[in-house]
Amino acid sequence: MQSTRQGTGRWTALTGIISVVMLLIATYMAFVYAPTDAAQGNAQRIFYVHVPMAWLAYLAYVVLFIGSVGYLWKRNQTFDRLARSAAELGFLFTTLVLITGAIWGRPIWGTWWQWEARLTTTLILWFIYLGYFMVRSYAGEPERAARFAAVLAIIGAIDIPIIHMSVRWWRTLHPEPIVINTGGPNLPDSMLLTLLVSFIGFTIFYAHLMLQKMQVEMARDRLAEREADFLMRPVGRSKNETTYPTTGREVTGASED
């Protein structure tokens, strides 16, 4: 037990240091090393944060999905902690994709927002994350909140591709907005390298945040468990005496790692 906790701590520190170094390099590369795009000018450099944010927004949802399926299947608290942590970070990154995208869109498209398939789907994703937190906070007891939220997350995971497809179909039936080609596979090597460093740096940073958040959630669950055990201990002599001598396990029934 003690050794695993030390192991987690080491990983947290390691991912923290690596990601900070890589992100500093990535920022330098984005501002100085990468050449200015001929068509978009400096605004193109926004992509070095925007694209990793988009990747993390969806990666976090994949983790949320895995945690949710795992929880409904195994009823293991660890899976629920994974889902909770991923949802919070996913929401942060989704907010950031939308904002950085709008800031890029303003000078390039001449408008903050386009009702285009990827943008619309990401906006819906944002609302699904929001709904996820609402369910968690209003569902009452923690076990029920975890169950309800997991069902929502799984339905959302299956719905997101459907939303993307339906919006794309809807938009292609309408006159397509003129969008400047944003690069594609034939980016100059220096741009690609910058994007890659930023990509990997942010991904490790995400791993770092996940480790931290998971540890916080684990400590919180442990505390709740101990409090429940304490309140429901066999002979109640405290002021909040309860009449349930041995049902303490029920509250914390989910298995621990």
């Binding site: 819906i124 709904g131 719905d159 939303i163």
Partner: peptide, 10 residues
């Protein structure tokens, strides 16, 4: 509606 409307977009 907060949960339902986004998912019902299609």
């Amino acid at each position: 509606p907060l949960l339902l409307f986004p998912l019902l977009v299609p």
